[in-house]
Amino acid sequence: MAHQARPNPYFRNLNAKVAATPMILTTLIVFVGCSVWTVLYSFSASRALPVNEFVGFAQYDRLFNTSRWTKSVGNIAVYGIFSLVFSLVVGFILAAFMDQKIRFENTFRTIFLYPFALSFIVTGLVWQWILNPTLGLQKAVRDLGWESFTFDLIAHRDTVIYALLIAGIWQGTGFVMALMLAGLRGVDEDIWKASRIDGIPKWKTYIFVVIPMMRGVFVTTLVIIASGIVRLYDLVVAMTSGGPGIASEVPAKYVYDFMFARGNVGQALAASTVMLTTVLIILIPWIYLEYGSKKPK
């Protein structure tokens, strides 16, 4: 009865390792490798092509002294805060209403969610048309006799970002509602029975019992919307092209324009590194919350 030594562990589960190769390569080369490359070359003097001449924070200096960039950052902050608050609040309220055993639930859900199936390009173009002051909603209301009615957010520098917001919320709130509804459906039925027996009003149960129970759903939704906001690009391209002037520029567009249209790779890389940092600031507390407290077994 011979003793058998442990076979080489590298060859055990070989098929599984082969099958996982695309994932491993993608992780290492794209998600880790490319990100590191970008961060590294954001410290270089690259212009039309990346060069190995490193200049410290010079690109960042320039970046934050460029009015187009600071405007982009301000825009995304305004857009981000409003769209987060609005889509979470409205999404939750719609979901709570949908959860009242209402009739036509499926119809309502289909209506609220269909914009999410559309491209940002499609969304942007439709709203560009509706918000167009000379032909769209404003004209329609004026035609009805209300001559002084103004609804020209899209045409003014200081309001154009709200025009983007209207379109963005139109597309995204249904998604938040769907997630919230799934979360609400996951709440134990007995909670509702208990609160009815205790005589607690429904709205109070929502605020003090159900929402705290749905913490996980809220946090996850928040992270998903937030990381989507940072990427905001297509909608702006389709709806305003960053205009009027630079009034609706956003960081992702800054990166694209400097990378491909203006041939200033160094600026683009610095800008994308700032985007990366922002996402990490959102992500790290989340990772910590979700996975940090759980000790490996």
Partner: peptide
């Protein structure tokens, strides 16, 4: 399950791995 150490015999045959 892959074991960490030891040997298993079934019908006198070493089947550990």
């Amino acid at each position: 399950l892959d074991i960490s150490d030891g040997q298993i015999f079934i019908k006198g045959k070493n089947v550990t791995w």
